[in-house]
Design a protein around this nucleic acid. Sequence first.
DNA 1: CGGTATTTTGAACTATCTCAACTGGGGTGG
DNA 2: CCACCCCAGTTGAGATAGTTCAAAATACCG
Lengths: 282, 282
Amino acid sequence: MTFAHPRRATAPERCHNCAVRAVGLCNWFDATGNSLIASRTIQTRFAQGAPILIQGEPVERVGVILSGLAKLVLVDERGDEHLIQLLHAGELVGDPFQSENVFSVEAATELELCWLRPAVLADAIGQCPAAYRCHLEATTRQANELKFSQVASRGRNAVQRLAYWIFVQLPDRTAPGPLRLQIVLTRRDLASLLEMTVETLCRALHQLEQRQAIHLETPEILEITSREKLRAIGRGDDDRLRATLLEPGWEWGARTLPSRPRLAVVAPCAADAPAHPRDPQS
Amino acid sequence: MTFAHPRRATAPERCHNCAVRAVGLCNWFDATGNSLIASRTIQTRFAQGAPILIQGEPVERVGVILSGLAKLVLVDERGDEHLIQLLHAGELVGDPFQSENVFSVEAATELELCWLRPAVLADAIGQCPAAYRCHLEATTRQANELKFSQVASRGRNAVQRLAYWIFVQLPDRTAPGPLRLQIVLTRRDLASLLEMTVETLCRALHQLEQRQAIHLETPEILEITSREKLRAIGRGDDDRLRATLLEPGWEWGARTLPSRPRLAVVAPCAADAPAHPRDPQS
DNA sequence: CGGTATTTTGAACTATCTCAACTGGGGTGG
DNA sequence: CCACCCCAGTTGAGATAGTTCAAAATACCG
């Protein structure tokens, strides 16, 4: 299956219906800047695993993620790929002020992107200095997130890291009925993100199941048996669990990352199996 | 020993003799902006270990590091401190656009700082939009550095991580005579930075010594016995070492971090022991 | 239905952590 | 001045989480 549907945006109003209208780059500019940009974008789809940007190549375009998840990948001297961070809808892919790509970016799931020439973005930002501030804040936020996630995994074992990660993915609101999630990342990607091997990831997953925190319906879909238990395990309270759980209202995550839509990572699936099971590698 | 020498800058020309004149924030502005800032700064000294900014407290000032090293520290829910990143001379401490400090910052070594009220910086940036660009680039550079260092430690054991770190600290130029370095960080800090325990750090250090890559003259001062060996070990070529070393000119580090003055981390000490051995905790 | 890729399980091995004890230098107070 | 303490650094030994390698099981595809 190949995706190659570059559709040139014919009218600025296309943006008005866009899903990411309210987030990220699309919100940095005033009306003038927005229409300037809107008319110069190209929408593209990527299959899971498809390369979006390649480390070391000249920056010919940058993009805004419309839907799906991107992996920020760094290749070390040995040639091993490392999944450093996930990029979500609304986030900017590529650095318009760099001459060549510092990282590779790949589609972690099927993904829609809004391409933009770096010069166009640079122009728009030049016209609207407030945009610098926005860009700066977005960059800072992303960097902080990285730091937080790094701390979250320090001194924690595989099960704890996994539990924490799953917990963070959960939607804020406790939906009625059993909570089910779809893990849209491959084991390989998730393992790399959580800094463990696929084997340990797998074992950790099953350990969480044994401890009644989750239940694996299929390899991709899991049901949250106990949010509390997940949180406790992720926190490292494995054993003192019972004691702590009884105390009402102990804020956790208050100082953690600002919440953000994560629908793409893990989608609460109310009804049945996903329409598109995972695509084969591109 | 206490440091409390706030010296109000009496004249803009103070900056002209400043050591960090050429780097970082001090270079973001035009003449107007610079003098605006120069007249509103306060220089302060910190003893090793002294807190500079506290996580969660309101941002009352930001600073530029003049000399010394700062640790960017994040405290997790369990109360454990994690040294995430080192900040060098010329770098900005604190985020002028945030209302409260996201991280703690502490002096890793004795340190000189140039304080600045966030509003002053914000004003100056407002007057000189190009400064946004500079700030943005500085932020990006720091974030990228973090990502690179993360990759550098993935899938590498303690000895490799340490060897790599030491190698990166080395001055670019191969000075004549034996190369000696001073590790200005405490074992605890360095261990935290390299994500290992002090014990493993210590063992790793001595393993490097056994393998003839370095020699520990004192706990703080080490002599580089073989740059090549250090590089090879850090790379993970421990065994294939001999084979690879014979090939001439295989770029390494070409794609790694842009080099930067690191004098504060590790000072090549040509002559004798440091004037001030490590200060006691503040 | 066979072929291929992903996920899962198993078992041996090992790097690192933990806990505990020892060392040495610097400062403090008698 | 010396005895003492305290702390950073070092060393040792046992416990263990995670890796590696290998193979089974499952899902997916034409």
